[in-house]
Structures are given as C-alpha cells and as structure tokens.
C-alpha cells in the first residue's frame, strides 16, 4: 500500500508538472482527485489495511492528498500568472491614449475670471447692471455734457424709446451707488456696446471690467496701489505700470494706465482708464437718492475700467478680435 502511495505521488506530481494549460491541469485534478480519481480509489483500499497499519497508511494517504492538492494549486497559480503575463505582454504601449471628452472655457471668460479672482483677493465684491440703460445712467449721472459726442446716434445704439445700450460698464457704478450707501467696493464685468463697424480690432459689442471704491478718505494712493497690485498679479511682478494724465468726464484727476511687460512684447500698451470719482458724479447721486451719503465733502472714491477683449488678444497673440466671437472649436479648444 505504501509503495502504491509512493508511486501515485510520483505519477501525480509528474502529471501536474507536465500540464501546460488550464484544461490539462483540470484533467489532472479530475484524474487524481475527482470522485473516481486515483487517490479516492486508493483510499477505498484502507478497508483492507491491517488495523495496526491503518494509522500510518491513513496519514500517508492524507499527506498524498495534501501534497497533490497543493501542487495543483501551485500549478493553477503558475498557469494564471503566466497567462496574466502573456496578456499584458500583448498590449501595444505605443498606441495613443484615448482622451476623455472635454470642452473649454472661452479665453475671454478665462481672463475675466483671473481678473475677478485678483480683485476678490483685495476684497472687491461683484456688481451687476442691465445692458439696456437710460441716458441718465450712461451719461448724465457720469458728468457727460449734453452735447458730448459719445451721445451721438453715430456712436451709441439707441432703442426706439430713447434708452440705449450702455457704452461702458461705468453705468454699474451709478446703479450700485443708487442702491447702497458707502462704503462701496465693487467690480463689474460686462458687455458694452459702441456703434463701430466690425473689423480686426473693433466689435460693436465688447467686454469691460469696471471698478469702484467709495469710502471716506479714499485717495489717488489707493487707486494707484490697487491697480498696481492688479496688473502685477496679472502680468507678473516685473511689470512696469505708468499712470498717464488723461481726461474722462466722470473722474478727476483722471489717468490712463500703460503697461510694459514681457507678455505684451516689452512696449507700452494702453490698457485702462481710471481716476478719482468726479464730485459732479457724487452730486448726481445725492440728487437721485435725495440724501447726502455721497456728499463729495465726506466721501471720495476711485473708479477704473478696462476692455478685456484687447487684453485677451494681446496676452494670447490672437491677431483678429473677430476670432473671439467666431466660436471656431479649433480656436476655442486651444485655451
């Protein structure tokens, strides 16, 4: 019996070693461990084993069963691992990746959002106003003389009822002050309209960012510090910023801001207008509100505005402003 066990062990282990595939191995398992397999058959011979030898033969049989089982498991693992390796080895790693579906945020929005984030870091809140405005909000309240050329029908879009499409986002300054007492510290991105024929540098509709800070004791120093911080955040600390005296009806003193930076080709580029809120604007607010919370003797403020379209063009090298509204996906997806 013991000799039988020994020969069966050698035979089974050899068969396991010889099995090269999972079905071969399964057949080996069946042959030796199946219900009518060689090992169960041999176990049936226990009945004929003398009593005194039963213990040792039983032990040997169990050892045989355990050894074959474990060899089969090892065989399974080896085959699985070989199969795994083979399946991985087949992958052609030079094939290109398959990108997930993804769109893009418009470059103008991206720039606008950068600008918004910078002003928010300084504590500015957002404000909003309508595109369709009254002449009062767009011009009168902003100290624009009655005969100012900007009011001309050649330059400004009017609706049949005499209202207009705002020519600048400065209207939001007025809307905000109408609705709340000082302090006011807001930025207002939005659309503005001018009756320009469309060409490579002009659109009839463009995007501006307006800002206003009104409180007690706001000075040119705050104006300068705020916009220096903004443009240096936007373009980097190596940016040169120049405030050049200028004229706007609604601010005094007024300045234009020129920027010189590597990102814009190291030449001065006019990017923004700004200034201290003209006392006439505050007086218009006082009249409108029927109170004196915006008395120019008690509050001062600064305002600024800049166009985002040209800035986006300059920052990205886009040569034609119309590309910003053509919505060519090949263009949009670059950003």
């Amino acid at each position: 019996m013991e000799a039988q066990i020994e020969s069966l062990r050698a035979e089974a282990l050899a068969a396991i070693t010889a099995a090269r595939t999972a079905p071969d191995l399964a057949a080996v398992r069946l042959k030796y461990l199946g219900r009518t397999g060689a090992i169960p058959l041999l176990s049936e011979g226990m009945r004929d084993v003398p009593k005194e030898a039963k213990a040792s033969v039983g032990k040997a049989l169990n050892a045989l069963r355990a050894e074959v089982t474990s060899a089969l498991e090892a065989g399974d693992r080896a085959l699985a691992s070989a199969a795994d390796e083979a399946s991985l080895a087949e992958v052609d790693l030079t094939l290109p990746g398959i990108a997930p579906l993804r769109g893009s945020i418009h470059p103008l929005t991206q720039l606008l959002d950068r600008a918004v984030r910078i002003f928010r870091r300084m504590g500015f809140a957002l404000a909003d106003g309508p595109d369709i405005e009254t002449e009062w909000h767009c011009f009168d309240a902003l100290n624009t003389p009655p005969h100012h050329p900007a009011r001309n029908e050649l330059d400004t879009f009017y609706l049949p009822d005499g209202r207009l499409l705002r020519t600048h986002t400065s209207t939001v300054q007025i809307r905000t002050m109408e609705g709340q007492p000082p302090p006011v510290r807001i930025i207002a991105p939005g659309a503005a309209y001018r009756r320009d024929e469309v060409d490579a540098t002009h659109l009839a509709q463009f995007t501006q960012m307006e800002g206003l800070y009104v409180a007690e004791a706001v000075s040119v120093a705050e104006l300068k510090g705020t916009l220096e911080f903004f443009f240096q955040e936007l373009f980097g600390t190596g940016t040169d910023i120049r405030f050049r005296p200028h004229f706007f009806p609604f601010t005094e003193p007024s300045f234009e801001i020129d920027i010189r930076t590597a990102a814009l080709g190291e030449r001065w580029m006019e990017l923004a207008g700004c200034g201290m809120v003209d006392p006439a604007v505050f007086e218009a607010m006082c009249d409108r509100r029927r109170d004196r919370v915006y008395d120019p003797e008690t509050v001062t403020g600064f305002a600024f505005g800049f166009g985002l379209d040209r800035l986006a063009m300059n920052l990205t090298g886009v040569p034609d402003i119309r590309m910003l509204v053509e919505n060519d996906l090949r263009f949009l997806r670059q950003f």
Binding site: R120, M122, A125, P183, I186, A221, K224, G225, P245
Partner: peptide
C-alpha cells in the same frame, strides 16, 4: 503721480447677489 506710493486698503467683502450668480 510717481511721487505717490500706492497702497491697498479696505475691509472684507460680503458676497453680493452678483457674486453668488
């Protein structure tokens, strides 16, 4: 204006309706 040193002042800002939107 180069004589003037720029500074930033002003307190924190509550979110306006425009901020939320």
């Amino acid at each position: 204006i180069e004589r003037i040193s720029g500074r930033v002042s002003g307190g924190p800002a509550h979110a306006s309706a425009a901020d939320v939107s």
